[in-house]
Every structure is written in C-alpha cells, then in structure tokens.
Nucleic acid binder design. Structure first.
Lengths: 152, 152
DNA sequence: TCTAGAAAGGTCAAATAAAGTCAGTGTAAG
DNA sequence: CTTACACTGACTTTATTTGACCTTTCTAGA
C-alpha cells in the first residue's frame, strides 16, 4: 500500500478536518508530492467524489485553483441515498415531483426552492424527445440536490 | 491565489454599495493596483456587464472617466423585464451565471437558491451539444425565474 | 477660428498561467 | 497471467495580464 494517491488523499483529508473547504493549486500539490499534475486529477476523481462526501470545484487560468468541499453528512445521508440510489439515470416528471415534495415535507428545502426545482424539471421546460428528457431530468435533479448539500 | 481582476472587482463593488454610481479614472485605478490600464477594461468586460446588473459608460480625453452604474430591481416588474426581454432564447453559461449573481446581489434570491440555479444551468448538468445546450439553458433560467415570481 | 499637442480611454492579439482530458504504460494483488 | 488500479505526458481549454497601437476629447496658442 501507501502509494502516492493514498498519500495525497491523506494529506488533503487532514486539512479538511480543520475546515470544510480547502483550496489548493494543482501544480503546487504535484510539486510537493513529486508527481505529474494529472495525478491530482486522478486523486480527485477516485477519492473526492460526491459518493465519498466531497465536491470539487476548480478554475483555470491565472489565479486558478482546485477547491475541495467536505459535505455535511448529518442529515446529508438521506440526500446521499437519494442522489446515488433512489434516483436512477432516468426520471419521469411524476417521479421527480415526488422526490421534490418529499424534500419539502421533510423541510430540507423551502417552498420557493421546491417551486424552483419543479420548474426546472417540468416537461415544458425540458423540451426534448424521450428518452433524452428523462435522462436530463435525472441529471438536473441530482445536480440540484448536490447544490443543496453543498450550501448547507 | 486571488487574482488581480477579482481584487479590482471587489474594490469597485465595495464602493458601489455606498452609491449606485461611481466614477473612476482608468489610469489611476491601474496605478493603484499596479497593472496595465487595459486590465481595467478586462474587469469591466467580464464583471460589470448588463447581465451582472451594471452599466459602464466612459469618456476619453482630458477629464475622462469610467462610470459604473449599478442597476437595481426594486420594481416588481424588473423580473418580468428580465424574463421577457433581457433573456433571449439562447444563453451561454457565463451569461446565465451573470444573471444569477445579479439576482443574488440584489437579494431577490438567496445563496442557496442561487446555488440551485447555477447547478441547473451548469454545462456539466446540461450535457447537450451546442446550440441545443444554450437554448435549453435559456429555457431553464426563464422557467426558474418565473417560478420565483409566482411564489413571492 | 483653427490646429497641434496632451490627456484621457479603447481594442486586440499575444503571452502567460493555470487546470482538464485521455489514451496509454506500468505495477501489484489475486 | 490477468485484471484493476496507479501514474504519466502530450495535448486541449480556459482565464488573466500585458503592450503596442488607435480614437476621442480638451486646451492653449497662433
């Protein structure tokens, strides 16, 4: 064991215990561990996914960075379950509305947020042929729930 | 880390909180931040667009200036205006993000709602080929803003 | 009045500074 | 010996920053 990817993971997770959000520079980190920059992407892709409870955002160009966000997992587990097991890769409007109203009843989202999400997944909004529409709807709902998870 | 453009943006926005119109001199501002004057134009072009809710006027020659005007959306029909006239039928991610950050800055939507909307219009969420993606994005944003309008 | 600076700001392409992708190679556990 | 995981490098994409050159406006002197 104890390969590079694990070391980098370890290093980042130590910092993430201090604060729920950290920012690193890919080239810096790669230099510190003496590896190729793309190795950092590999670590992100395999260890800091939403399934693992993390979100990664980044920016290119001058002043670029990689930001890792540790998701709050307290009542996050329910949302997690929703995102990764209940919502498949296709979703009908009725199913989506069902999930949304459940979230509202559980007070995880406000009425306005529910209205917003409903509008987004409504079939009039996503004017695509099936099955593309149902695929996109699943994607939309998943992304929006992750956004909630991130900003709570 | 923090780049110059972001610093300049923040500096100007602080002043814009005091008053809805400010005037600066390009060369002065560039000198203060130790950068090329054209950097100021870059900041105007990327951060103070109409989508972001700002107008920029300027005048050359002796006594020249750059004037930044913060538009506000106190009038209820401003959202209406946004939906029916400003947002066209295609929208790039940058334009959409501009509108969203304007809505947030003007306290019409919360941070969470902004995050939700950003997630929905993000290019990773709408995985379609252009120009379909830009059409759908315009549709999505319009529908979500209408939802906000209806539920407030 | 006319005109030549001087004093602004504008434009655009190139340079620079990041990060992302992907196909392919290496490696170690079973 | 094969398969999954780790790792790399060449190439791509995006964002920022600068500098050379252009346009507009004002002002002072002829």
């Amino acid at each position: 064991m104890a390969n590079l990817a694990d070391d980098i993971e370890q290093y980042l997770k130590e910092h993430l215990q201090q604060s729920p959000v950290i920012e690193v520079q890919r080239a810096m980190l790669a230099a510190r561990f003496g590896c190729a920059p793309s190795q950092i992407n590999y670590v992100m892709a395999t260890r800091f996914t939403p399934e693992h409870g993390y979100l990664v955002e980044s920016r290119r160009g001058g002043g670029g960075y990689i930001r890792i966000i540790r998701l709050n997992m307290e009542r996050g587990d329910a949302l997690h379950e929703l995102v990764y097991h209940e919502i498949g890769d296709q979703l009908s409007q009725e199913e989506a509305f069902g999930y949304i109203s459940r979230l509202r009843e559980q007070k995880i989202i406000s009425d306005r947020e529910a209205a917003l999400m409903q509008a987004a997944v409504h079939r009039e909004t996503i004017r695509l042929e099936l099955p593309a529409r149902d695929f996109l709807r699943a994607h939309l709902l998943r992304s929006m729930i992750l956004a909630i998870l991130r900003s709570s």
